[in-house]
Design a protein around this nucleic acid. Structure first.
Length: 458
RNA sequence: UCCCCGGUGGCUCAAUCGGCAGAGCGGGUGACUGUUAAUCACUAGGUUGUAGGUUCAAGUCCUAUCCGGGGAGCCA
């Protein structure tokens, strides 16, 4: 039986067995209290071990961090603070934890220290809670899209395409690095495993677009990799991204989907992770629930980029970076829009073509493209999406205009040659969604084993 | 990559003008027949990130370097 089930019991029971890790022990003369946690929920269960219980002689070794097996009876607790407790009939020490070297105390630790013991931090309340919420949020993504008839597709992790167009890539190679084959001074990738240079994917979008032209509505949800030297609390070299793609859909459909998705995910974890989420509302961000309520209860603002520029120009606040049509919005501008001007999520759309990718659909004005960024308070850009350019001639013109090698895009162009359809999609950073939901401010704390610049431990 | 702040016991921090390195928690030992961050008593624990330098004297000042945090850029 797991702690979660025991604590939710309707009636007492005899002869139950629980396994878990000791969070704390309180000794008295003749008996001990153990707080046992098994990871199934935030709460511990209190176990009373009397001196005559078999195994009591090992109590000096049953310390914080030790794993134990408890056989006993679930009874109503006479003490305050818990409904149920376990009166042990047998206590078994499975694995001891030396109290002099076990690093987790029952008192609160700093996030920085816990990052240095990432292998043990899931045994703390906060990181156990994050891990459970992360699991539930993943499930919610599948539930949301499945309900709407989307198919979950698996885009490749290894890609031979250097045209995904979303940042620096990690090279994947089978070469012996001490002895790289070279040709004309350059590394000769034709001799490598794939016969060409291979990389870790930065986005599943092109695959998703491909599959949408056959299955209609699809989504990818998996790891992506960026070799960018960004050192911030919002970036990791390996992170998970959700990328839906809809056939026969335009930018307006895309914004609808993004808004609906964000609200659904928040509602889902609020309903299914109450205890865990409550910890964040109390200790991590006191305004968390007010923030989440305001996101769920209000319509997102839909703001053309041109109007966003006008609002920023009229702002009394001084910005460090210039505001001008044609320039990208900086962090300070995004925060002004979401946190000061509108005080809620803002979907900025129709960006100048110069600052957006080649595959985004050209608008009739010929100077903007059908792109959207959904900005949320504190996090900034949570979703980046667009309607894709489905007209072959326009796509080709953009590829040439940007000086890209058109031959590389042969299969992507084929999708426009054969039964092309308007389609749209977006990418959502999964960790950023988790940060929004929990109020956690550092991405390293919503990934169990974060990979960031010069950090590859655990 | 750039800018700012920090690094003192296992953890979280203090140490005034450059003048005896301290506390709480955690650990150990003991007390306690229902505890709840248990309580009470006693106790151990330090080359102040590292390498140089200035000084009668450096945790404190200077130089370099490493690590951590925050902000920015890049982006999700």
């Amino acid at each position: 039986m797991r702690v979660r089930q025991a604590l939710g019991a309707e009636a007492g029971m005899e002869g139950m067995t629980l396994c878990g890790w000791v969070r704390t022990k309180r000794d008295s003369k003749g008996f001990s209290f153990l707080e046992v946690n098994d990871g199934s929920c935030l709460k511990n269960i209190q176990v009373i071990v009397d001196a005559d219980v078999p195994g009591y002689e090992l109590m000096p070794e049953i310390n914080t961090g030790a794993s134990v097996k408890v056989v006993g009876n679930l009874v109503e607790s006479p003490g305050k603070g818990q409904t149920w407790e376990v009166q042990a009939t047998v206590i078994e020490l499975i694995g001891a934890a030396d109290p002099e070297t076990f690093p987790l105390q029952k008192k609160r630790h700093s996030d920085e220290f816990l990052r240095s013991i990432a292998h043990l931090r899931p045994r703390s309340n906060k990181y156990g809670a994050i891990t459970r919420i992360r699991s539930e949020l993943s499930y919610a993504i599948h539930a949301f899209f499945r309900d709407r008839g989307f198919y979950y597709i698996h885009s490749p992790i290894i890609t031979g395409s250097d045209c995904e167009g979303a940042g620096e890539m990690f090279t994947v190679s089978g070469f012996d690095f001490a002895n790289l084959p070279r040709k004309n001074g350059q590394v000769d990738f034709s001799q490598d495993f794939f016969g060409k240079r291979a990389s870790l994917t930065v986005s599943g979008q092109l695959s998703a677009e491909n599959m949408a032209t056959a299955l209609g509505d699809v989504y990818t949800f998996g790891p992506t990799f960026r070799a960018e030297n960004s050192n911030t609390p919002r970036h990791a070299a390996e992170f998970w991204m959700l990328e839906p793609e809809m056939a026969f859909a335009d930018l307006s459909d895309d914004m609808d989907l993004g808004e609906e998705c964000i609200k659904y995910l928040i509602n889902h974890v609020r309903e299914h992770c109450k205890d865990d989420l409550d910890l964040f509302g109390r200790f991590v961000d006191k305004s968390l629930f007010a923030t989440l309520d305001s996101i769920v209860d209000n319509d997102f603002v839909r703001l053309p980029y041109g109007e966003a520029i006008e609002i920023l120009k009229k702002a009394t606040q001084k910005f460090e970076y210039p505001v001008e049509f044609g320039l990208d919005l900086q962090t300070e501008h995004e925060r002004y829009l979401t946190e000061i001007h509108f005080k809620k999520p803002v979907a900025v759309f129709d960006y100048p073509k110069e600052i957006k990718a080649f595959y985004m659909r050209m608008n009739d004005d010929n100077r903007t493209v059908a792109a959207v960024d959904i900005l949320v308070p504190r996090i900034g850009e949570l979703i980046g999406g667009s309607q894709r350019e489905e007209r072959l001639d326009v796509l080709d013109a953009r590829i040439k205009e940007l000086g890209l090698n058109i031959d590389e895009y042969w299969w992507y162009r084929d999708l426009r040659k054969f039964g092309t359809v308007p389609h749209a999609g977006f990418g959502m950073g999964f960790e950023r969604m988790l940060m929004l939901v929990t109020g956690v401010t550092n991405i390293r704390d919503v990934i169990s084993f974060p990979r960031t610049v010069s950090h590859l431990e655990f």
